[in-house]
């Protein structure tokens, strides 16, 4: 392996890694918001809306991100909607992640016992106060492991962004491979993803421990 080649290309990979993590971060934050909203709609069985959400969750989880991106990037141009690559990437990731996060958060909500809700109601809390102070803190503590798995999954999924010509890690590495330095590029690709994802993984391990204490009182 050519060390000089690797060192020379670190800035290039650094830039690509920055794009990857920025897109991932934006998409994942949106996923969480979408997931939370969808999970609450399903949990409280909001008429009509909860069926719609169920359909969305199935659609988002059972189609590949690549197809979703193709639809956003190429498909929508047919009806006159032109989205920038960055927009497509974030929207696509949020669309995919929203379904996964909704299920993760719902599993947390389901773990909150009925008597918790009744005792919250019996001290006169409104629905919103009940969700905010009683249900969500406990639900999120239960959902953290699933949210962590989804987050890491979604960061890895960003590797398909290269198909809509975004210069992310995968794109840069593939470019270099064409020049014939595939060993070095592959190596740098793997290291880059590890550098991005390992801290996320460690962060969630610690968060999980803290949430367990804070959310479940032990």
């Amino acid at each position: 392996m050519d060390i000089d080649y690797i060192v020379a290309h670190i800035p290039m990979f650094g830039k690509a890694a920055f794009l990857t993590i920025s897109l991932a971060l934006a998409g994942i934050l949106l996923s969480l918001l979408i997931g939370l909203a969808c999970a609450l709609v399903r949990y409280f069985r909001v008429p009509l809306l909860h069926r719609l959400i169920a359909a969305y969750i199935e659609l988002s989880r059972n189609t590949p991100l690549m197809i979703q991106l193709f639809f956003l990037y190429y498909g929508l141009t047919r009806v006159g909607i032109m989205l920038e690559g960055v927009t497509c990437a974030i929207v696509g990731l949020a669309f995919l992640g929203g379904g996964y996060m909704a299920e993760a958060i719902r599993s947390g909500l389901d773990a909150v016992g009925r008597v918790q809700i009744e005792s919250g109601l019996s001290i006169g809390l409104s629905r919103l106060q009940l969700i905010r102070y009683v249900v969500l803190p406990q639900a999120m503590a239960v959902a953290v492991p699933a949210i962590a798995a989804n987050t890491i999954f979604l960061i890895k999924e960003t590797s398909v962004f290269s198909i809509i010509a975004l210069p992310d890690l995968m794109y840069v590495a593939k470019d270099l491979m064409k020049e014939g330095n595939s060993n070095e590029s592959n190596f740098m690709l793997v290291v880059s993803y590890l550098v991005l994802i390992l801290p996320v993984s460690l962060f969630f391990t610690r968060l999980e421990r803290r949430m367990r204490r804070a959310g479940l009182g032990h």
């Binding site: 019996s122 409104s126 009182g217």
Partner: peptide, 30 residues
């Protein structure tokens, strides 16, 4: 419900709050 206190069979305290927070939640928020 603020005028009718109810205590249930199962231990229904909020597990993520300490004793004082459990007691204060209703009076402060509701």
């Amino acid at each position: 419900r603020q005028q009718i206190g109810m205590v249930f069979q199962s231990y229904d305290l909020f597990p993520h709050m300490n004793v004082m927070e459990n007691i204060l939640l209703g009076p402060l928020k509701a």
